[in-house]
């Protein structure tokens, strides 16, 4: 019995979500291997070899594996899948894109967003926007799983010394081409791994106000910025800041919700945060039902005051 973690990486280093996925893979009980599929990704392979608990790194390198196109990456995973009982992907945009494709090609079901490993074939996962937790048992020989990274601690990024084995890379599928990307640049902590998140909703009123009011607070706390769907749809914040059922799932030490009412879909993305603070004018806002500390006040006065007092 062995588990393969399909790493998320940028060719030079592995991304944080991979470390949480390694912890989930170790919980499945067998040896843990990591697959680095990329282009000139020796750096990422070396980084994966240093992760504590990893027994072996498989390194597939070819130009066609750049940008993680689902068709090619799935074929690459399939090429090595027969040696494993578990294939684990982080439940990120990249992992969710590829994992079901791999599962279908193996003719097995896939388990999405696992939050706990109860046994090698039994997992917990949230359904209905996190309003229920299902305990599910896979009846297939190979378990294909995406791992909710907030459900597992990160494995130590150093201390391991796994062997790196080069595996043959598959050919590019040719049916899909990467054209370009617009990745937002910011020097803040990454939303999904931030210790503190300051999040804004529709009450901010405009993108200028969003930046003007929330940025000083985020700077002061060293926090990442998040947003509700209403704020994203209204254009106050970029798409990839959205926290919720269909955006990012976060679980920081401190989550500060400013002008967010607290719809079911938003709560699904943040209710596992350790401490939740809500600042809202409306005493009836559902966000107060999950907040550890609620402040009933106008955020335009309360937030600057908070910044001043920190």
């Amino acid at each position: 019995m062995a588990a393969l973690v399909i790493a998320e990486h940028d060719n030079a280093s592995v991304k944080g979500a991979t470390l949480n996925t390694v912890t989930a893979a170790l919980a499945c009980g067998g040896e843990v291997h990591v697959l680095i599929a990329g282009t000139d990704a020796a750096g990422a392979a070396q980084a994966a070899a240093r992760i504590a608990g990893v027994a072996k790194v498989l390194h597939a390198d070819a130009p066609g594996l750049n940008h993680g196109l689902a068709e090619t990456v799935a074929a690459q995973v399939l090429a090595v899948a027969k040696n494993y009982t578990h294939l684990l992907f982080p439940a990120t945009a990249a992992g969710k894109n590829v994992a079901p494709r791999v599962a279908a090609l193996l003719d097995v079901a896939q388990i999405s967003d696992a939050t706990r490993v109860l046994a090698a074939d039994t997992f917990e996962r949230p359904i209905y926007a996190g309003n229920a937790i299902a305990t599910v048992q896979s009846l297939d020989a190979i378990k294909v799983i995406t791992v909710r990274t907030t459900g597992f601690d990160a494995a130590a990024a150093s201390g391991g010394s796994a062997a790196v084995e080069t595996v043959a890379a598959v050919a590019d599928s040719g049916s899909s081409t990467f054209i370009g990307s617009e990745i937002a640049k910011n020097d803040r902590p990454e939303l999904t791994s931030a210790k503190i998140i300051v999040s804004g909703g529709r009450a901010l009123g405009s993108s200028e106000k969003f930046t003007e009011v929330l940025t000083p607070l985020a700077d002061k706390l060293g926090a990442a910025l998040g947003a509700s769907r209403a704020a994203v749809d209204a254009g106050y914040a970029p798409n990839d800041w959205q926290v919720g059922q269909t955006g990012k799932i976060v679980a920081p030490q401190l989550y500060v919700a400013c002008g967010i009412s607290g719809a079911i879909q938003h709560l699904a993305g943040m209710k596992d945060s350790k401490v939740i603070v809500a600042i809202n004018k409306d005493p009836e806002a559902p966000i107060f039902s999950v907040a550890d500390y609620g402040l009933e006040a106008d955020l335009f006065t309360a937030v600057p005051e908070l910044v001043a007092k920190l």
């Binding site: 079901a109 039994t122 996190g130 937790i133 305990t135 599910v136 297939d140 209710k271 006040a297």
Partner: peptide, 29 residues
């Protein structure tokens, strides 16, 4: 191919409190 063994409630959060002003909030945090 996947058997649902059980569906349960998510863990409940402990009841929170309302704070009267920003100073109290900072102090509590």
């Amino acid at each position: 191919r996947i058997k649902t063994l059980k569906v349960g409630e998510p863990p409940k959060r402990g009841a929170g409190i309302k704070v009267p002003d920003v100073a109290t909030l900072v102090d509590k945090l």
